[in-house]
Design a protein around this nucleic acid. Structure first.
Ligand SMILES: [Zn+2]
Ligand SMILES: [Zn+2]
Ligand SMILES: [Zn+2]
Ligand SMILES: [Zn+2]
Lengths: 142, 142
DNA sequence: TTTACAAGCTTTAGCCACTAGAGGTTCAAG
DNA sequence: CTTGAACCTCTAGTGGCTAAAGCTTGTAAA
């Protein structure tokens, strides 16, 4: 029987986050004491640890939900789980490409600025005029 | 005199986003027609283009606000503008480091999985147990 | 001049994944 | 029995938009 605080400490999750996961149905509703406090079992700890580790690897909560569902069927093929991981890898690689391009542009504008008056600031110039850039930067969020 | 739609088209910004920028004080309140529709000037177009370009380069709206304020003082030193850009570069580089580590872990778990039953899925195994990882992955958001 | 309709308007709520705070109750040690 | 840390619920906020409902306005053709 674990309190929410113990669960929290053992997984490095904020207490509110644990409650949030319960609220969105990612964790089951645990048992309660007579006074209404949550009491967890070891299985909950494992599940929460899985969630947190997947989050650290960048998986979205929806993907994690799928992965948890899949792992409840140990006899089935893991093709679906693998493809979720491949999807995640693709997303990471897309972000990498974008950030690498940003890094290049930022480095360049900083290097080119003489650090003189604002009127001649290379940083501001480039921000004012994309044609000073070497790369395109499509969508904003990526 | 530009309508909000024209502004939107010329800068690749959604109409609602333009109104949002006005709401948070990033764009001034423009003039209105008798009927209450917004009418912009060329200067608004330049400002919005600046904002959007800075967003594409990953700057946060707060940083953009600072940059815009700074560029209103052309005779001052651009040291502050440059340091905002350097801060942005640092952030990009930190994210790059994190994503590169994630990429490595994801690649590895995918490569090591034989694609057999869920019970033996390497992806799930690694997610269940961080000690299977080669790298640490500190904080979740980065 | 009337009419049609694209484009504008405001207000509200939703997205993701938490996080913080207010204001109260329970548990466990001493 | 008392203390106080830890728990509880509920609400609202973060960033940067985005969507939708339900209106009103502007403009150009008939
Ligand atoms: Zn400069
Ligand atoms: Zn550019
Ligand atoms: Zn597998
Ligand atoms: Zn790990």
């Amino acid at each position: 029987m674990l309190t929410i605080g113990t669960l929290s400490r053992k997984t490095g999750t904020k207490v509110q986050t644990v409650r949030y996961y319960e609220q969105i149905g990612l964790l089951r509703e645990p048992g309660r004491t007579a006074g209404g406090q949550r009491r967890y079992e070891e299985a909950d700890l494992d599940r929460l640890a899985f969630i947190r580790h997947a989050r650290q690897l960048g998986f979205a909560l929806d993907a994690i939900r799928e992965l948890l569902d899949l792992s409840d069927h140990p006899q089935q093929s893991c093709a679906d789980a693998d493809s979720i991981a491949r999807r995640q890898l693709k997303q990471v690689e897309q972000r990498l490409l974008r950030l690498q391009a940003l890094q290049k542009e930022l480095k360049r504008m900083i290097a080119e600025c003489s650090g003189d008056r604002m009127a001649d600031c290379r940083v501001l110039e480039v921000l004012r005029d994309h044609s000073e850039c070497l790369t395109a930067h499509d969508d904003i969020g990526a």
